[in-house]
């Protein structure tokens, strides 16, 4: 029971955090906390097999899948605060709370009788006992599950598959396009400038400086610029100035 009273507040807090988390990644990590705590509660309740399955399947596989999709769908996936139906949020919270209150009050009033416990059922080990039921009484459901998994795998493949609508761009075509751009628009032929002011930084979030002191836009990734994590030119200039005007004349020191 100690484990329960430690984990239960943690789980409720994490679940509530999921409701308020702005970013999908934070929600996924909070969900991981809830799932691992649940696994421990399964262990406490004499279900070691489901404890392992919960960690392997839920936290290991399903949550990783969620994180992958968050990664693919990208940073854009922010929640809009605008309501499409007026009063929708207030009403859903009210209905949800009413539902929860009814459920909790109802459950709290019911007496579940004496707890028998699983010591008898688990006498020869939890896994053999589960296997015995699964492969005798529920063997048909188990077989149907395999059909479901195959269907799901095929469905995911069909949904994720994308037909190639345009021919694949070859290196020769790219080179030709580059020459064409140079001829028509005067775009620079060579590679993009590398990022970084190498005397002070060499990280990708620092734009290269042009001779006139302005930043070379093409030297940093578009993604970093969109996120706003790029170091600004005045910031770099200030640092360079700081270095440039020491009290001691140059050549001394060191």
């Amino acid at each position: 029971m100690v484990a329960f009273w430690i984990l239960a507040p943690l789980m409720v807090a994490s679940a509530l955090g999921m409701l308020f988390a702005r970013k999908a990644v934070h929600a996924a990590l909070l969900l991981a906390v809830v799932m691992i705590s649940l696994a421990v509660l399964y262990l406490v309740q004499d279900a070691p097999f489901l404890f392992a399955i919960q960690i392997i399947v839920y936290t290991g596989a399903i949550l990783m899948l969620f994180l992958f999709v968050v990664m693919l769908v990208g940073v854009d996936a922010s929640d809009s605060v605008v309501e499409t139906i007026r009063g929708h949020r207030v009403f859903s919270i009210l209905v949800g709370l009413a539902f929860g209150l009814t459920l909790v009050l109802g459950v709290a009033q019911v007496s579940f009788g004496t707890v028998i416990g699983l010591d008898d059922a688990n006498s020869q080990g939890n896994v053999p006992a589960i296997a015995e039921i699964l492969f005798t009484k529920y063997v048909f459901a188990f077989e149907v599950t395999s059909a479901l998994l195959i269907t799901a795998a095929l469905g995911a493949m069909v949904l994720a598959h994308r037909e190639r609508l345009t021919p694949k761009v070859t290196q020769a075509a790219l080179a030709a396009q580059r020459m064409k751009d140079y001829a028509e628009k005067g775009t620079h032929l060579g590679p993009l400038p590398p990022p970084g002011v190498f005397a002070r930084h060499n990280s990708v979030d620092t734009p290269a400086l042009l001779p006139d002191g302005t930043a070379a836009e093409a030297s940093i990734s578009r993604v970093l610029a969109a996120r706003g994590t790029v170091k600004s030119v005045p910031e770099i200039a200030a640092e360079v100035d700081e270095l440039d005007t020491p009290d001691t004349p140059r050549g001394e020191g060191n």
Binding site: M11, M18, L19
Partner: peptide, 14 residues
């Protein structure tokens, strides 16, 4: 029950 309710509210509001 509490976790189920929180999940339900999340489905409705997010």
């Amino acid at each position: 029950a509490i976790l189920f309710t929180i999940g339900g509210i999340g489905v409705l509001t997010r």
